[in-house]
């Protein structure tokens, strides 16, 4: 039986019958770089977030903001680690890990909040607002630099 192979101009041989899911990602893991950037910025912003939350909700608000921010940063870190672990093995595993990792991370956040919900030093509104605001805020902050570095790869801006 004749085996069909394709060759892209200047590229490696590509077997026509090879499923995309059987392929694996090569090279460095960009998720880890992005996640490290986000965690670094989150740690820089942590005192400000805790201060603002403390002014609005008091001392319990400050502690809750700290817990919320820690959950968000752990969530980003875990997502990056899972994807960067799975991608070099196979793209199918990366798909599975992305979907089940989503469930796992939601479960872990739920468990963490469930464990601290009755603590006297927790303010649930402060915790909830911090989780949403810090998650979206850190993403938009990072996206500003990602967008610039994707458009002009040689001119990555400083953080």
């Amino acid at each position: 039986m004749k085996k069909y192979v394709l060759r892209r101009p200047g590229g490696p041989l590509v077997n026509e019958k090879l499923s995309p899911l059987a392929m694996a990602a090569q090279g460095q893991a960009p998720e880890v770089t992005v996640s490290k950037d986000i965690i670094r910025r989150g740690l820089i912003a942590a005192p400000i977030v805790m201060l603002v939350s403390g002014v609005i909700w008091g001392l319990t608000g400050a502690w809750s903001a700290g817990i919320g921010l820690a959950l968000v940063l752990l969530n980003f870190g875990l997502a990056a680690l899972l994807i960067s672990w799975a991608a070099p093995i196979s793209l199918a595993l990366m798909m599975g890990v992305s979907l089940f990792g989503y469930l796992l991370r939601l479960g872990l956040i739920s468990l963490a909040v469930y464990l601290v919900r009755d603590a006297s030093w927790i303010s649930l509104p402060a915790l909830g607002v911090t989780i949403i605001v810090s998650h979206l805020g850190l993403l938009f902050w990072e996206m500003r630099f990602i967008a610039a570095s994707l458009a002009f790869p040689g001119l990555r801006p400083n953080a």
Binding site: A25, E31, V34, M143, I146
Partner: peptide, 8 residues
């Protein structure tokens, strides 16, 4: 992958 991570 960078865009995918941000999208997720």
């Amino acid at each position: 992958r960078t865009t995918m991570f941000l999208g997720i």
